[in-house]
């Protein structure tokens, strides 16, 4: 297969970027999208040009490192999947493919297609944890957790932290990311003691990092490689309202 690629090139955070055209030739349909970029980079290297910088690590959809917007869609057309799980057989031969980084104000570009997502780490640092000192835990089966709650917590906890939700959102909102962590921990009895402070602090930092608000577009859910449901955003809102009321009632 052959493709015309339009790739975002930007030497560093401060420089201006632009789309540059490249051709990818003789690509097998069983090549993954990132392997196609590897091949292109090999060719660029052979021509003495600088390879395209892009991030990836596990290449099996779990580490959340890859962060490409393909033809305007975060992670490309094959939802639910991260870019590394996308194969060229999903494209038409001789298609034109535009490749950009995730575009979110809170994720500055490092180089070409590589972005800085430390803002997401800072949201978790604000309270996305259960304070459980190593060595102090009770016996694991001493607190039964209803299977339904544990399963639902797992569905939220499956978030891979890629940031596609924010990239797909017209408001650059990280609500789905934050909601997944708040929901995961508040669904479990172990997360209950910090339930109020957790949601208040995480939402505060989320706002401070410059992420936008949710206006129920559900683009986040549509592109999420881990299939996190937007209903967790409703849960986040409930948790936030509950915590605010408790806080204002002086609890």
């Amino acid at each position: 297969m052959n493709f015309l690629l339009r790739v975002w090139r930007q030497p560093n955070a401060k420089a201006r970027g632009k789309l540059v055209d490249y051709e990818a030739r003789d690509i097998s349909p069983n090549t993954s999208f990132l392997e196609m970029l590897d091949i292109l980079n090999d060719n660029l290297l052979g021509r003495g040009e600088e390879p395209i910088a892009f991030d990836s690590d596990c290449r099996e959809g779990i580490c959340g490192t890859c962060s490409l917007t393909i033809n305007g869609e975060a992670h490309g057309p094959d939802h639910p999947a991260a870019v590394c799980e996308l194969y060229m057989r999903k494209f038409r031969d001789r298609a034109t493919i535009t490749i950009e980084p995730f575009r979110v104000r809170s994720f500055p570009i490092v180089k070409d297609l590589v972005i800085d997502r430390r803002a997401l780490d800072r949201i978790v640092q604000a309270g996305g944890f259960i304070s459980a000192r190593a060595g102090s835990a009770p016996e694991a089966n001493s607190i039964p957790v209803p299977k339904h709650d544990a399963d639902l917590a797992m569905e939220a906890a499956a978030c891979i932290g890629c940031g596609a939700c924010a990239a797909a959102c017209p408001n650059g909102s990280a609500m789905l990311f934050t909601a997944a962590k708040v929901s995961h921990l508040s669904l479990l009895p172990q997360g209950n003691p910090e339930r109020v402070t957790r949601v208040l602090k995480m939402v505060q930092v989320m706002d401070a990092e410059g992420f936008g608000n949710c206006t129920n577009t559900y683009e986040c859910e549509a592109v999420c490689p881990a299939e996190i449901s937007a209903s967790f955003i409703a849960k986040l809102n409930r948790e936030y309202a509950r915590a605010s009321l408790r806080r204002s009632a002086g609890e």
Partner: peptide, 12 residues
Amino acid sequence: DQCVEQGVPFAR
């Protein structure tokens, strides 16, 4: 024990 207390959603 430690992981359950941290909120790891093991199968139940």
